[in-house]
Design a binder for these strands. Structure first.
Lengths: 148, 148
DNA sequence: TTACTAATGAATATGGTTATCATTATCATT
DNA sequence: AATGATAATGATAACCATATTCATTAGTAA
């Protein structure tokens, strides 16, 4: 499949070997729009690939984050969640986290204004604090429809 | 001291008893501009008040967050950090976190533009997703002057 | 001062993530 | 296709931040 070959190619800039766990994990995340926890990812993979180890899931996710394939963000309940990073600009979004049921809603309104603000901020920060900005995290939290 | 009495008064809207640990923890945070971890807070208090328990530190911080006295935010290394919440609008700020040495820099540039964006976003989100926005977190990650 | 009970703190549990290390599997070379 | 160097894996256990339990202590209204 072309997608996988493409991944493999991009991947090999970061690691030397193309392995089954790496492909399976990347594949799973690329097919869902959910914000999955490690537990969920592990459980999901276990059905298709019972041999997989939890350690490998952690390591691979870390790798994928570093390689820029996926995003990691804290979901507020002490664990991280992961999502496939789309390269389409339109799909840039942030999260709305319900502090009660932990439901996560993506939103992508005001992306342009936001991106502009972020860009502007990053430039100033780079100058003012000699800080090399690599990423940002914007989250709104509150109560969702059902929980309020 | 007037500050403490004021706190006590505000505090009693949330809890029924004014205790030494609560005063000491609130006092410590109000006197520093640092973004302290639980470990740091505990260690610092232990000098002045060796009897204090780690559990109480956790419980009290939780209480102070809920009561609106302090902010809690994830520092990216798996632990939370806490800071005294100023009621002065001018001191509204966000964080610049170095992913290497974990140094945190406050910045408060573009506060007006940012607040406007945030306000606008909150309004839309409330309507569109029936979401009751209670707060937000904005953090930039990257490398500080020394680490890059 | 007393009595009620919220708050504390020591000990323990929990849950997410990381480190260790023997085993396995990938891939360049043959 | 077979080999061999070594990167990657996975089981286990460690680690660390945070939560829970419960007997004891201490605020506060009376």
């Amino acid at each position: 499949m072309p997608g996988q070959l493409k991944w493999r190619h991009r991947f090999q800039a970061h690691v030397s070997r193309w392995t089954v766990p790496r492909e399976v994990i990347l594949d799973l995340l690329s097919r869902t729009s959910k914000h999955m926890s490690v537990k969920e990812i592990y459980a999901s993979l276990y059905k298709m690939y019972p041999g997989i180890g939890l350690t490998t899931v952690y390591r691979t996710l870390d790798l994928l984050v570093r390689a820029g394939f996926i995003n990691r963000f804290p979901s507020g309940d002490g664990q991280n969640r992961y999502e496939f990073k789309s390269n389409k600009k339109k799909e840039h979004h942030h999260h709305l986290v319900c502090i009660k049921c932990r439901k996560i809603i993506d939103y992508s309104d005001f992306v342009d204004e936001e991106l502009e603000l972020v860009k502007k901020t990053e430039e100033i920060l780079a100058k003012k604090h000699s800080f090399n900005v690599l990423g940002h995290n914007i989250e709104f939290y509150g109560l969702c429809e059902k929980c309020k």
